[in-house]
Amino acid sequence: MYAFEYHRPTTLAGALADLENADAKPLAGGQTLLPTMKQRLASPSALVELSGVPELSGIARDGDAVVIGAMTRHIDVAQSPVVAGAIPALAALAGGIGDPQVRNRGTLGGSLANNDPAADYPGAALALGATIVTDRRRIAAEDYFTGLFETALEPGELITKVSFPIPQKAAYVKFPSPASRYALVGVFVAKTADGVRVAVTGSGESGVFRVDSFETALSANFSPSALDGLSVPADGLNSDLHADADYRAHLIGVLAKRAVAAAG
C-alpha cells in the first residue's frame, strides 16, 4: 500500500467536496479497494470513507420499487424483511455474495461502482431494470454498465442509492467459480408486467448482458421448457482457467432454466 490521505466526511456535501481531488476515491466496504491498494495495483491520493454519511444507507419500499442506499451492506439486504417480501431473489443474491466477512463489509454501491464482471449485483440491476441514483442524476441500468469494470459514472460522481422495481417473479441462479466463489456464470430472470428480462453476469467479455432470445421465449411462456433448443453463442463470452466460452454458453442455458423453475 502506498501512503494516502484519509477523510471521513459526515455529510453528502462534505463527501463530494472531499472527492473533488481527481485522485481521491470513495471507500465503501473496502472489500475490493483495500486489497487492490495492498497489492499496489491502485494508489489513490486520498480515501473518502463514506460510512459516516447517514443518508447513503437504508432500505425502503417506495411504491413499486425497493430503494436501497449505496452504503447498505450485503448482509443488510440479505436479512431485510422489506427486500425478502418484495424481491426475495435479491435478498437471496445478497446472501450468496462472498463469505460472512465480505457480506458484513461489502456494499451495494461499492459493488455496482466496481462493476466486476463476475459480481452478482449487476445481474440483478440489469434484469430488474434498476435505476442507479447518483449525487447528480438517475441512470438506467441499461446505460450504466459500460464494460469490464467500466460504468457510466463520471469522476467524482457518487452512487447514493439504487431503485429496484418489484417484479412479479424473479430468481437468481449462480454457478460459483470453485476458487473465488464469484459468479462463473450467474443468471437473473425477472418476470415483470412488461415481459421477462434475463441478465447474465460472470460471462460476458464486456460484462453483464441481457439475452434477447431467452426473454422473447420466456415472455411468451414462462417455463423452463420454453428455453429448449435455445442457446447463447459462445462468441463474446469469456474464456479463462475455470471455464472456456463453450462451457459458459452451456451453463447459461442450464442456469436460465433453473432460474425459471426457481422463480416458479
Binding site: 470453485p178 476458487a179 473465488s180 464469484y182 482457467l241 475455470h242
Partner: peptide, 17 residues
Amino acid sequence: VYNDDGQLLTASYMDYC
C-alpha cells in the same frame, strides 16, 4: 497453472482453489 510464458496464473485464492 503456468501459461506458456511461464507466468503463474494461479497465484492467489481467486484462481487456486
